[in-house]
Design a binder for these strands. Structure first.
Length: 404
RNA sequence: GGGGAGAUUCCCGAGUGGCCAAAGGGGUCAGACUGUAAAUCUGAUGGUUCCGCCUUCACAGGUUCGAAUCCUGUUCUCCCCA
């Protein structure tokens, strides 16, 4: 082996390892890379996504970004669209039984999923496989044989199942099938390595086991951290604490600015590719500057530099300087032209609050301003405006009521 | 197959005949503070024509002046025994 290859092995290894939580195992990966680079045969790196909810969030972007790095090194990415596994539901990191999706729901999600993944990966160079390709071809006997590869004891060793049993939460028998299915994907695509979140480690290891049983070299398992959402809990669409890849530039930027300081380091490492020393300098400086930079990097990546700058300008203006936004949505007066409306009803009618009760509460708490003046009486009658009336609810909601 | 426990408001979780729109915590919203946050403090948190009325405590009936609370049936979950 030439010294040139040895250096490149180290280079590739560093990319694999950067920000990773588990690597099983490094010795094996090094050997794979040596062979791969000397034989000029890219490694097949698998990643599976189940189209189980319509939107991907930045947490999903972490492994995808890692895949992109590997893709840029010339390795072959194999993206598994888990259209069959989605109907089972991955029990990983779940303390509850997942609702089972129908074929129709899966198909709808699938389209948006690949579109979103395309924001990160070069899909031209990505091998995309649906796992229904092989699962739909299996007979009941095939399924039995697959199930027979593991024992219940091995399965319930998993901490998620342990926890559920302790908490008397249900565990569906079909959930036992999930790790085996994911592992079977690895056998089918003959991958050299599989990437997943830290909660996937068990499933990834089952892949190694099955590949060995099938006479294949066991895959290297690589996990990336799961990140917390904006409220500190695990990021999840259902908690409403996620930043999704489909969020607009402004929404995305503003959301990142709400992140707690302590998480910034992880976010920089996992979601940006800024050099380490630059990140260190940023983190040592003013937290707001660092966070703004983080937000700008993320927004630029998922949208573009221009949109990110605009979002930052809007943030500075509206939040930092407490100025009105440049664009204020206009709402036509909802009543008859010469009419009057109680303030609470007006707020609901123009959509600034979802119910009149919410409007009343907010008004009574001093959260509503008309032309900049706090109004505390929810039944105060508002006359149809002759000139635009500026209505603000809290810090974020604003509209201009215009005559019609 | 037998026995036991349970299903509560967005989530978790109290409540076992009237004082229950239902404790407490989380989340969320509003206000204060601030660096944009976080943390902290205050208040709010089913709807509404808002000191009244309507809807809500798995579902369907029933008892009662009155039920989340009692009874019957149904659905779902957990535990133990076989």
């Amino acid at each position: 082996m030439s010294t040139g290859i040895a250096a490149r092995v180290e280079e590739h290894l560093a990319v694999f390892k950067r920000g990773a939580t588990d690597l099983i195992d490094e010795v094996q990966l090094r050997a794979m890379l040596e062979r791969s680079l000397s034989e000029r045969r890219p490694l097949r790196v698998k990643y599976g996504m189940d189209p189980s909810s319509p939107d991907l969030h930045v947490g999903h972007a972490i492994p995808l970004l890692k895949l992109r790095d590997l893709q840029e090194l010339g390795h072959q990415i194999v993206l598994i669209i888990g259209d069959s596994t989605a109907m089972v539901g991955d029990p990983s990191g779940r303390n509850k039984l997942r609702p089972q999706l129908t074929r129709e729901e899966v198909e709808v999600n699938l389209v948006t999923y690949t579109d979103q993944a395309a924001k990160i990966l070069d899909m031209e160079r990505t091998e995309i496989r649906r796992n229904s390709e092989w699962f739909n071809a299996m007979t009941f006997e095939d399924v039995l044989l697959l199930l027979a590869r593991m024992t219940v004891a091995q399965m319930i060793e998993r901490d998620t199942f342990q926890k559920r049993m302790q908490e008397n939460e249900p565990i569906g028998i079909h959930e036992f099938l999930y790790p085996l299915m994911q592992a079977w994907d690895s056998v089918q695509v003959r991958c050299d390595a599989e990437l997943g979140g830290t909660d996937q480690l068990f499933n990834l290891l089952v892949g190694r086991k099955l590949q060995e049983q099938e006479g294949q070299a066991p895959q290297v398992c690589l996990t990336t951290p799961l990140i917390n959402g904006l409220d500190g809990r695990k990021m999840s669409k259902s908690y409403g604490n996620a930043i999704t890849l489909t969020d607009g530039a402004r929404t995305m930027f503003f959301a990142v600015m709400r992140l707690d300081d302590a998480s910034m380091g992880t976010w920089f490492t996992q979601l940006t590719r800024l050099p380490d020393d630059e990140v260190r300098t940023l983190l040592a400086g003013h937290p707001r500057e660092a966070k703004a930079r983080l937000a700008e990097e993320l927004t630029s990546f998922f949208h573009d530099r221009e949109a990110a700058r605009a979002a930052r300008a809007a943030f500075d203006r509206e939040v930092r300087d407490r100025q009105l936004p440049a664009e204020i949505p206009e709402r036509p007066w909802p009543g008859a032209p010469g009419d009057t409306l109680p303030l609470a009803n007006l707020l609901k009618d123009i959509g600034l609050t979802s119910t009149t009760s919410e409007a009343r509460r907010t008004i009574q708490q001093g959260g509503v301003r008309l032309d900049g003046t706090v109004v505390r009486d929810p039944v105060q009658l508002i006359a149809a405006p002759v000139a635009p009336l500026l209505v603000q609810v809290g810090k974020k909601r604003v509209a201009r009521v215009v005559p019609r």
